[in-house]
Design a protein around this nucleic acid. Structure first.
Lengths: 338, 338
DNA sequence: CACTCTCCATCACGAACGCTTATGACCTAC
DNA sequence: GTAGGTCATAAGCGTTCGTGATGGAGAGTG
């Protein structure tokens, strides 16, 4: 199980071609063929079906292991390199689409910052391999529970903020009347000041309701179970995967929360605009109301009791340089939670 | 970062000797020297100080990574091998010293079972590498919270049981009067029936306090904070590491919970006997009262609100063979918790 | 059906690598 | 000072690894 062989195997499996993998890796097709043969001989089982080139069941299994192993290998390299090199002056921040919390924006240094939006599950890898100094990931969790991050990469997580969840609707949607606040503000402020000062861990109650018309008799929010049969935006890279909603609701994978329009991209504002245009519902953090999307209505999610939690990731034990400063500003308490 | 080089590096660091590592690995001392030199050249930094042979700070860091990487490499191998081979007939169970819960004992098949007690942090590795089919780990956690397992190995955890915690004392200890029940039963039953039928997740309330008189209120149990200055048994392989108690109490590492006698071993009954003999306090699951150690008194822990949680580990997605049967008997609910 | 194109497997060869033996430099013990 | 231990270095040599060339197997085309 030489990592070299694993690397070529992963390439071959991904490209479904020995020749293409050879081109990508700078090898000869012959070498790639020998690599795969060596790996299959080492493990004593076929890994790839030829013609067409596709992984066997065992090969599929190996792909999962190999991805994790190679990532951790790179992460170890990066960690050691970071250990020796002097701390960088610049700060690169990898953020999931909905994770760029106002609290973080307020704590960023004035210069030398690069922000990169990535799909949610690529952020830990970016932090681990050193492609980014810090990462911001978000997700659904019970109040004050840590996020269940995939343990593909060794990173340390610190809580940043928790806030309520809302469902984005077009203004003419039948359920829009349950919104507690008015439509989105006209000014498209980049950093909404609401909840920017809320301490992490505090469950942001849906306070400061604008008008009291919807408070008592009509439901103050939506129940996710009532939206199982609705049409949702399928935005695996920008919002929450629909399977996540199904898991939260307890539905089996593939049942309920049907997809309407599918959005392949990582822009949270685009996603909100699509919801506002009636192409499907979207579950968003409450601060999405500050995105300034005209025509969007946000209805708080009343049940199940979930929060949108944001966590800050860094590699290794303690960050250094500007990353350390940012961590210090965001998290005065070092070991948060259990 | 060839795993071969990592393996030799780990051996050299552990044995603090190039020559000894060469003997252990079946290499020449020269080869080991070249391995280390190659690794240092690859990473561009010294890893070992010579004379005496000791890791540099960067080398210490690499050791952590290397241990995890090599373990995962072995785990991947074992998983693939398991994937191809027919399911085994026998069942090997690796259990932490306090994790062999009566519920599990009751569910074991009649024949073909091997139980192996290991230190707590070696159990996941044993399961991942295939040295054991299933693992049982225990730990302190908030009620219904999953254990925080070190992610050194890719394993799947399922809850088995939760029960209260007790502090083991000798009968003549000043705090022994706070015990709720009498001393250990005379009969040394192998499988205590108490709490064997208690459902998982039920917090064992400290009920039926014995007598009053010590302080203002007749405390029905002990508060961990009152025992910070007591002398504790230091049994890193059998009980809970003292650092774990310090972390629970919020004390900095190394402060409080001083060690009295140190026990190097994995026998829970021995540990209880040491506590009964007055060599120090020990924090144990409530079912330890059934170990049948004469002279031992067990006082429930009233605060902080913690439970002794037991989880079952298995490698891969789904177990096969007798392991699958055991998992099925223990965990009717497949996906437990969040 | 022949032809061609592309794909992957196999063979042979040169270069590079990896391990061993042998030797040197250095330290500690007596 | 010598002996015994350590680790580093050099030379030798077998093995491995990658390349280039060749061959068989399908797929598409006329």
């Amino acid at each position: 199980m030489d990592p070299h062989l694993l690397r070529t195997y992963v390439s071959v499996a991904r490209l479904a071609s020995f020749s293409a993998a050879a081109r990508e890796l700078g090898y000869t097709q012959s070498a790639v063929s020998q690599h795969v043969a060596a790996l299959e001989a080492d493990l004593g089982m076929p890994l790839l079906g030829r013609r067409p080139v596709a992984p066997t069941p065992a090969g599929e299994r190996l792909l999962e292991h190999a991805a994790s192993l190679l990532l951790r290998l790179d992460a170890a390299r990066a960690d050691l390199a970071r250990f020796a090199a002097p701390p960088r002056e610049t700060l690169t921040l990898a953020a999931a689409p909905l994770a760029l919390h106002p609290r973080v924006l307020a704590a960023l240094p004035a210069t030398g910052v690069t922000v990169r939006t990535l799909p949610r599950d690529e952020v830990p890898a970016a932090v681990a391999t050193g492609a980014a100094d810090l990462g911001l990931v978000d997700g659904l969790a019970a109040p004050s529970d840590p996020l269940r991050l995939p343990d593909v990469a060794p990173v340390t997580a610190r809580p940043v903020a928790e806030e309520g969840l809302v469902v984005a609707l077009p203004a003419n949607h039948p359920l829009a009347s349950r919104a507690t606040s008015a439509t989105a503000p006209a000014t498209s402020a980049t950093a909404p000041a609401t909840s920017a000062t809320a301490p992490a861990g505090a469950t942001t109650a849906p306070a400061t309701s604008a008008d009291a018309g919807t408070l008592t008799a009509p439901a103050p929010g939506l129940v996710l179970a009532d939206l199982v049969d609705a049409r949702w935006l399928d935005a695996p890279d920008a919002g929450f995967p629909l399977d996540r909603l199904r898991a939260v609701h307890g539905a089996p994978a593939g049942r309920g929360f049907r997809a309407a329009l599918r959005y392949e991209g990582t822009d949270a504002r685009t996603l909100t605009a699509l919801a506002a245009a009636g192409h499907g519902l979207a579950l968003l953090p409450a601060s999405a109301a500050g995105l300034g999307v005209p025509g969007a209505v946000f209805v708080p999610l009343a049940a199940p009791r979930l929060v949108h939690r944001t966590e800050l990731l860094h590699a290794g034990r303690e960050p250094a340089g500007p990353a350390a400063e940012l961590v210090r500003r965001l998290g005065p308490r070092t070991a948060a939670g259990r």
